[in-house]
């Protein structure tokens, strides 16, 4: 096949599929592959489990890092979360939503369970006591990427951090957060307000620019 013919063929395919159409086909193919992986995971296929883990590990770990004050805690949370995710794969219904969203919900529940088990969730009001912890690390302002923002969230007091994550990142409502954490709705609102105030203190000048 000559180069010219090959180019024509590719152009023909691109024309008829359309770029968007091609992308959709590709996404569908990936989803299909994911479904096969999940099905194999349910049967206990170790290779499939590993493949699914490698696919989502960055996303899952980032969630854990946001909720944990440090890396060792995030590691423990991820371990608990993995056990929960793979043990409850049978409950996942692909018609109700994506695996990514479902697994994230399970992971967040496992994280809250972990916090409840090992630590007592302390709803903190004394802001000044924690200000100095942020002031120590000025490096985060140099480059505001996900890593730096995660580190900033990690430095928040536990109550602030969890409420902030649940409300801002996961998108839960205040009454849901109150139910999940066993606190009142007004406490949840207060904690979020104060978390944002702390973050704004550091980010304020940058955001206003």
């Amino acid at each position: 096949m000559s180069i010219c013919t090959e180019r024509k063929r590719k152009a023909y395919i691109a024309f008829h599929r359309g770029y968007l159409g091609y992308q959709q086909t590709n996404t569908r193919r990936l989803e299909k592959r994911e479904k096969v992986l999940i099905k194999k995971c349910r049967k206990g296929d170790a290779v499939a489990q590993r493949a699914l883990y490698l696919r989502y590990r960055v996303r899952w770990y980032m969630t854990c890092l946001r909720y944990a004050p440090n890396k060792p805690d995030a590691d423990d949370m991820l371990q608990e979360g993995l056990i929960n995710i793979f043990n409850s794969l049978g409950q996942f219904d692909p018609d109700k939503g994506s695996f990514g969203a479902w697994s994230n919900r399970v992971l967040v529940n496992a994280i809250l369970q972990y916090i409840r088990k090992w630590k007592r969730l302390r709803v903190v009001d004394d802001l000044e006591a924690y200000i100095h912890t942020l002031a120590e690390d000025e490096v985060c302002f140099a480059r505001l990427g996900a890593e730096e923002l995660t580190k900033m969230i990690q430095k928040l007091p536990e109550g602030y951090r969890i409420v902030f994550n649940l409300y801002v990142i996961e998108g839960y409502k205040h009454h849901e957060i109150a139910q999940m954490l066993g606190i009142s709705e007004s406490t949840s609102k207060t904690q979020l307000f104060k978390a944002k105030r702390m973050l704004r203190m550091k980010l304020g000048s940058i955001l206003q620019q």
Partner: peptide, 13 residues
């Protein structure tokens, strides 16, 4: 920074 170590997987599996 955002990649967990393989140890976690080995311990959870």
């Amino acid at each position: 920074w955002n990649t967990p170590s393989d140890e976690i997987w080995e311990m959870a599996r």
